[in-house]
Write a protein that binds this DNA or RNA. Structure first.
Lengths: 109, 109
DNA sequence: GTTCATGCTACTGATAGCGTAGCAACGAGG
DNA sequence: CCTCGTTGCTACGCTATCAGTAGCATGAAC
């Protein structure tokens, strides 16, 4: 996992790089949990259902390489300027999720 | 992978269910490749860099269970009404990807 | 009958992720 | 100096997921 940028980025289409980046476990979740501000690595872990630090660190590294997440020493991880742009672009999907769940039978509770 | 709806859906927050659904390999890609109309299972496979039919079938099943994808016998797989809504909500992220790639050094071409 | 395309499944081997434990660095308090 | 508690990060063994290839059953055209 060193020089390989992002799976699919060689197609030249940025959307493929993004699709591939987001299509990995915890990636979207991390970005989402960071929406209200920076979190320490351990706090982020708690927010993400205590996911393995192994994967979390890997995702954080990818996200930092992608320029979406930044790390302030001692203060934890937070969204970068681009990360916040991402989240803004993501919000319509949040709205969709609400409507989607409302029309789904698989939402008993 | 039988009765379990979607990881994280028990939190009651639909966004978690969506985040989790999308955070699986090929899920986002499938939805994206279906944007211009239905594709047969094999055509979809080609569009998805010849991904394993095993995973593709699994994703297709999940996507159908989620109500985002439909299957017309002989005609292939296509987005449902909700699937199209999803894609509409996804478009801002497409726009973001373009800007994002432009500001990234990791896009030599 | 043969041929072709459809959707789908069965394997085996590789990769990614999980769960737990632990390390090094830094600051506060004694 | 030492201890304590926090930080970010890594190692290890085990499991689940994915990859890659092959193959099945169905249906239409000929």
């Amino acid at each position: 996992m060193a020089d390989r940028p992002v799976r699919g980025s060689r197609t030249g289409r940025p959307i493929m790089a993004l699709l591939d980046l987001l299509g990995r476990r915890w990636t979207l979740r991390i970005l989402w949990e960071l929406r209200d501000g920076a979190l320490t690595a351990r706090a982020l872990r708690s927010a993400c259902d205590d996911a393995s630090p192994t994967v979390l660190q890997a995702r954080l590294a990818e996200l930092r390489a992608a320029g979406l997440v930044e790390h302030a020493a001692g203060r934890g991880y937070g969204l970068s300027e681009e990360g916040r742009e991402f989240l803004t672009a993501f919000m319509p999907l949040y709205a969709f999720a609400e409507r989607w769940a409302a029309s789904k039978p698989t939402t008993p509770g």
